[in-house]
Design a protein around this nucleic acid. Sequence first.
DNA 1: TGCATTATACGAACACTTTCGTATATCTTT
DNA 2: AAAGATATACGAAAGTGTTCGTATAATGCA
Lengths: 127, 127
Amino acid sequence: MQPTEGELVILQVLWSSGPSTVRTVNERLNADSDKAIGYTTTLKLMQLMAEKGLVSRDTSNRTHVYAAALPEEKAQKTLLRRFVDTTFGGSASRMVLRALGEGKASPEELAEIKRLITQLENEGNHG
Amino acid sequence: MQPTEGELVILQVLWSSGPSTVRTVNERLNADSDKAIGYTTTLKLMQLMAEKGLVSRDTSNRTHVYAAALPEEKAQKTLLRRFVDTTFGGSASRMVLRALGEGKASPEELAEIKRLITQLENEGNHG
DNA sequence: TGCATTATACGAACACTTTCGTATATCTTT
DNA sequence: AAAGATATACGAAAGTGTTCGTATAATGCA
């Protein structure tokens, strides 16, 4: 199942921090943002995510520990496809061109991307 | 203002087809998809978009003609930023690497991207 | 033991978006 | 002119996601 916008920011915390408690996640969310989000709001969201299978949770202690059940890479892949479809009419390359054109990538990153492309081109030639 | 998911698909029709009537848009939407969407649904959505300023409309004739008011490039830029933030933690290059890794780009497209990168690198050297 | 703190569970309110029924006006065709 | 087709306007239901209040249980400490 697809994570919603709100669920996604929670997943990001879990992906970057590893298994966490509701309180930890909630504090991370409020640290970044100006508008505080209630503790029970985060709790509810994470409970729903557990029901959906987006996260797993260890309930052996009173304070439950949640972990992302959806791998980051898989989620990104799915969301990327949908995003490219809905806002770039399905053309990944047009999206990439736009992204790079924004000047958000460092020289090192550009070099890495170039390297990947060269690699892809070589793979294409061989098999 | 940000277009919603539904508004975005309508904008795509307007971007690709140019100024259109509600009926035209509605038929385009139903052509692609299996689940038919009602005429008045599309109408209502486009009326709301007109209120928000996402589209302009010519009401000089009985059958109104709608045109995208938000340029495609600008919308893509905004949406891209948000997407990169929420699902790639703000790293455009990680997103690009993932997109290209999916193998959705043709050799020609890869070459074009490479060309752009080279161009960006040269710009960086000069100024 | 008794009080303050901190957990989870859960229902319900809210907000936002989508969907469509119905009223009404305007064309078109006979 | 009458009937049918087609247009907009608009209210309201339905769907989805988010937010939080409150109940209840477990924990820690004076």
